[in-house]
Design a protein around this nucleic acid. Sequence first.
DNA 1: TATCATTTGTTCGTATGTATC
DNA 2: CGATACATACGAACAAATGAT
Lengths: 258, 258
Amino acid sequence: MTEIQRPGALYQQVAAAIREAILSGEFEPGAPLPSEAQLIQRYQVSRPTVRNAVATLRAEGLIEVRHGKGSFVRSDGQPAVTIERRVSRTAKGRFTTPDGSEWDEAEVTAYRSRTTRATGQLLGLDTEEDLFVCDRLLVDPASGTRAMHRMLTPFAIAADVPVFGEAPGPTLTAAYEIMTQVGHKLWWSETVRARMPLPDERSTLRLPDATPILHVARVTHGTNDRPLLLEELRTGADRAELAYRITADKEPARRGRA
Amino acid sequence: MTEIQRPGALYQQVAAAIREAILSGEFEPGAPLPSEAQLIQRYQVSRPTVRNAVATLRAEGLIEVRHGKGSFVRSDGQPAVTIERRVSRTAKGRFTTPDGSEWDEAEVTAYRSRTTRATGQLLGLDTEEDLFVCDRLLVDPASGTRAMHRMLTPFAIAADVPVFGEAPGPTLTAAYEIMTQVGHKLWWSETVRARMPLPDERSTLRLPDATPILHVARVTHGTNDRPLLLEELRTGADRAELAYRITADKEPARRGRA
DNA sequence: TATCATTTGTTCGTATGTATC
DNA sequence: CGATACATACGAACAAATGAT
């Protein structure tokens, strides 16, 4: 039985006590926490209070709760997948996107859509402009990590290159290759964000509780900085990380909001 | 009064109904949701059920709840701060880190510490090796966005350059400049992760509910790919994003795990 | 300034359903 | 099948923040 007498609400004091026990190593990663009944005894509080405390730690990503089994300390292991966001050109003139691990394509769906305010801005278009969209569900075979990939191609770009008009459209590598052969000198502008997943993203990516999504939007630019296509990659941040390699170079001209 | 009769638990059905109303635009961003009492009436459920549903939407980051006022739809606006992760070299040979907006330094504390397993690996050291550490609390004056910056310098590196041994150590720009003058050709390796904040990070960064943290670890490498120092930047993902600019170039030699 | 109604936060109690072993 | 553990749902009461009277 541990004394509780700190700041804030009762359940926060209980949560703080358990958190401290976890961070201090009293409960090892993977080890089970005491059951709700035991926590009620230990801290002399009611069941709702214990559940509130447990819910708090769960939202912090510190523990994982399994129905009928108990609560377990999450292991803060290294990410299983390192996504390297450098695009290189091989000797043969091919573009490759080294991902650390190669993804398997589990599902591919292609359809037509229109720009939203956000996607239009990234592509240098207005809203409600026509697009080809190709969604891919990617799976890392080694770890089972999942990712959602979306490629958006404006009609104006696809018109220059017939392949883009046909479903499901070319693969990414092929798209890059084609763009280069057409004479574009490519560069990429990426923005990285994180947010909590919506329920459908949670289930598609098979994410545990309190797992944020890493959301990468990459705009491929060609000659004259013309935006050619937009990629969006969404994956759970619990097992994936992004890796960049940056080299100092000359001051680049400011090209507006990335 | 809206009919509820779908999958899963009652509170999940209520949550789904409200979520749909939000995403369909019935409740505009910034607008208040019905009060708990009204939701009880609307869906004919008990208060705990309504509160559970509201808590679900809160964990998804869809709504924001203010004590004594009500629940409000979160605006999914553009981030206030775009952190540009390109390091450039000016004509004078100075390094600048254009941040989109310049940060103010609110607090600076310097101390000595040792490598952990994670930091040691990034710096190419064992664990428990001596370090100089400098923490800075950064504030974007325009938006009030906060960020935590940490710079770790191994003793071995600091020994070469006296300034590093004195608290609080040089600023980042100064550090880069010094490294260059000593003869290093610098490049950077960054890894980006996202996770839920711990309570102290929540309060320091003043983060609202369901806000993940963007965690960037940047290792500065010098001649012979020797790791010189490690920076860590942590900031709330609700108002900040990272921006990278990537150019295709020759295949780089693989340098191990980034 | 003080009070009051409204709204969310916290805490107890109780009962039942469902997953795991 | 039973025992254990978490999930859901209802009811009730009081505390605390907010804004208006």
